[in-house]
Design a protein around this nucleic acid. Structure first.
Lengths: 124, 124
DNA sequence: TTTAATGCAAATACTTTGCAGGAAA
DNA sequence: TTTCCTGCAAAGTATTTGCATTAAA
């Protein structure tokens, strides 16, 4: 039952409300008494990411994490310490990205430019 | 003999001349008949990165990669397909990054903003 | 019936760690 | 001697895959 699994995972991701790894989604599903296999979680998240229903990025430690985001084009500001994230849109930023990357012959595809820093709490 | 290992690894990284993983450096060292253990390569690369002698970033697939770079502050443009990279410096970019991140209370630390796209060759 | 999804266990790949031997101070 | 470095093997973690089972079309 593909559709049901999709929505189960999506619901879990929404509840978590932050970039979460497959493992974290899996744990959360266990806690909420949803019986899903770990591999199914991995497969479902990959599918959702391919369909642009969730965003996929990597934490500084290399773990892949997913999050339900606004559908419009945006980038992320990510906290290296606690993983908190905010989405932002900036025309200026897009233009500058284009300008810089085209200078070197590069083409930017999706919203593949995450900025890693420290959030307010973690930068004290 | 720490110093010797450091320079052996640095030499290898320079020869590779691109962002390379610990595994790749290790293979290269084997080919060039330098007998170093894999864990030593990992440990040495980590040390070099902490000392800011090499740059460390993550490939889109999550593998950690290292490269000898110019010592000044810069960012990277990374090809998602072949891994090619260029370094760039842009006052405008820095300012915009600062402006955007401070808007959300974030502080940017090192050169932790890599832009992933497709290089000329891979974007055809 | 034919196709697609699922769970489990096994297999990968990268990375870290414990430990004993050896080099350097 | 004392401390640090190294290599090997073992362990750990994240992720993928093979396969038999089951649900859906």
């Amino acid at each position: 039952m593909a559709i049901k699994t999709n929505s189960t995972v999506l619901t879990s991701l929404s509840a978590l409300n932050k970039f979460s790894s497959a493992q974290e989604v899996y744990s959360h599903l266990l806690k909420t008494k949803n019986n899903v296999g770990l591999s199914t979680v991995y497969r479902t998240l990959q599918k959702l990411a391919e369909a642009d229903e969730v965003d996929f990025i990597r934490r500084p430690d290399g773990e892949g994490v997913y999050k339900v985001c606004v559908p419009s084009h945006h980038h992320h500001l990510l906290c290296a310490n606690c993983g908190a994230s905010v989405e932002f849109q900036s025309e200026k930023f897009e233009k500058l990205l284009d300008s810089i990357s085209s200078q070197f012959g590069y083409t930017i595809k999706g919203h593949e430019a995450e900025i890693v820093g420290l959030c307010k709490k973690c930068s004290t």
